[in-house]
Design a protein around this nucleic acid. Structure first.
Lengths: 332, 332
DNA sequence: CTCCATTCGGAAAGCGGTTTCCAGTATGCC
DNA sequence: GGCATACTGGAAACCGCTTTCCGAATGGAG
């Protein structure tokens, strides 16, 4: 392993000078020395030891990202945005997937803290269990006390900077759009009750209906994934329009309906939430609520990195946009 | 920041003892001391500084993964598998996305080398340009010389352990299956000529047709993504069956055909390659060649981590399996 | 009771950088 | 010419943890 010392010796300069030349420093080095060092580094094939650098500097150039599941296109898009932004700052991204286990979320924060990553990004819905949330907060606070930066994508419950999608309002807007098409009897594939994102969307939808004087929707709980949608939609009774609280569930619902010979949108309308990219080519194309996922990921990076140590955490609202497509049709 | 020294002092033991207790060591520590140290660590909220640990040990516990694009479900599945396997070894995964730029692939290897990651996983198709490949090899060799482990998912061109999917054979097998259904006139949406994965699949398909005495397929080049499939399929002339060299392109092709009112599979059959999970609910469901992506990601981790320093790199072949679904229909 | 083999705690030397503090030289100004 | 003022290079003190090497203590065997 070629070390900085090897380079310094080879170039006939001190360690300090070599360091200043090769790893950005505020001080500059004379042209002669600089060139000698650069040449030696190239000849020897020197590569900075980031671990040593991190130790000496007390700060790494890695950002930690905690997601539920990378295979879920929602998180893939978020991660992609975050990685692009991180790269612009010269950082790399370390990813931890919790597979929806809140305990592992806590464990990852601890691990990332040990890594002394520059910032931690937490994404995915919070859960209603206050104990879990408070234990996560403790872990995050510990991290922040030692200078760590944190941002969250989701609900503002962690006392940290948050990118907060307007789940409630988006779902409400969707409800109004669907009602405007003449639908009055709705079912909501609401996901698990303990996931706040799911609950917010479901509640926002129901509230908007109530505001319009329409009957309460039929609410069906189940898992937050494709199979959850598949199962839940089977229990729908008498609705003309089904709202799945995320696109992945909507896909499951479409599959189930198709397999039972129910035509969408002729027999029933279906809408989702998120506007997942790879799902755009579905037939019928899915009515949904668009969230700028990649952008949110990038914003989270900026939010975490910006601001001073003691600043009050900021909450950045993210607007959603209803996108009407083929899976919904106007009622006569 | 609480350091190990703080813990040692608080517990009234030496640094060495504290280290042995808190960060796995081959030597064990007496019960009394051990408990004292553990208690102090808990009280003070000690968290190992992994950078220091990495420096002292000369080896980190992170694995670097280089992918083309996380949003592409192919890589998301691969990454997921790799992350699960890494976690089983107590490692974390650092991801770099190249967005299909070979230069960035090289740059990432260099960065990951600087990070002294335990292993580097390179995934995604190699390119035909020998210069790019050899520069990547140089970078990888440099890394391996300093003790780094490398594994590759794709073509065995880097002189490192490789998980090698049977692209050629899989495509050939697909061709034979489609021919068995009566198709004789094929078009191949072949992707870019410089991507070896694309070229292999295209070639394997054509070879199998030749072996059956069937006419050569119409070969249409274009980008390796959804839009590439969308565009390329427009040029198909006179084929009864279209083979897109990956599923994502097939999705684009389906979309284009639908928008032109061409029915699949009634008017034309379509097949893809990879068997991407989130695409399973497409209508019509896609005939494709299944690759066990998550498993391949996990295997890559094992392959990189296993074996001794000087071992001859192993090549692990991965079999594919043809999956016939609705997007293809038998020809009268 | 002595002696040897273990076991266990501690001191200290790194691991590979960064950065502060010093000193020497060159420059600017009166 | 004399002196204050940048610049620039180098010595050395860390950053926090691991691990080797020692010495002391413990326990079993003879």
């Amino acid at each position: 392993m070629v070390t900085l010392e090897d380079v310094a010796r080879h170039a006939g300069v001190s360690l300090a000078t070599a360091s200043r030349v090769l790893n950005g420093s505020s001080r500059n080095v004379g042209r002669t020395m600089r060139e000698r060092v650069e040449k030696s580094a190239a000849v020897l094939g020197y590569r900075t030891n980031v671990a040593a650098q991190t130790l000496a500097r007390g700060a790494s150039n890695v950002i930690g990202l905690v997601v539920h599941d990378l295979v879920d296109p929602y998180f893939a898009a978020l991660a992609d945005g975050a990685m692009r932004a991180a790269e612009a700052h010269g950082h790399m991204v370390m990813v931890g997937t919790t597979h929806r286990d809140p305990e592992r979320e806590i464990a990852y924060v601890s691990t990332l803290n040990a890594q002394r990553v520059r910032a931690v990004l937490i994404s995915g819905s919070r859960v209603t269990d206050p104990d879990v949330t408070s234990r996560l907060r403790v872990e995050l606070d510990r991290y922040r006390e030692s200078g760590g930066r944190v941002a969250c994508v989701g609900q503002d419950l962690l006392g940290v900077g948050t990118i907060a999608p307007a789940n409630r309002e988006g779902a409400a807007e969707l409800a109004r759009s669907l009602a405007a098409l003449g639908h009055t009897r709705f079912a909501v594939l609401a996901g698990p009750p303990h996931l706040i994102t799911a609950a917010d969307r479901s509640a926002g939808f129901a509230e908007a209906l109530a505001g319009l004087g329409l009957p309460e929707p039929q609410v069906i709980h189940g898992p937050f994934d494709r199979d959850g949608g598949y199962e839940a939609v089977q229990e729908v009774a008498g609705a003309t329009c089904v709202f799945a609280v995320n696109d992945v569930m909507a896909v499951g619902a479409l599959a189930a309906l198709r397999s039972r010979g129910v035509r969408v949108p002729d027999d029933i309308s279906v809408a989702g939430f998120d506007d997942i990219g790879p799902l755009r080519d579905l037939t019928p194309s899915l009515t949904t609520v668009r969230l700028p996922l990649a952008e949110m990921g990038a914003q989270a990076v900026e939010l975490a990195l910006s601001g001073e140590e003691g600043d009050e955490p900021r909450v950045v609202p993210v607007e959603c946009e209803v996108v009407l497509r083929e899976s919904v049709r106007p009622l006569a």
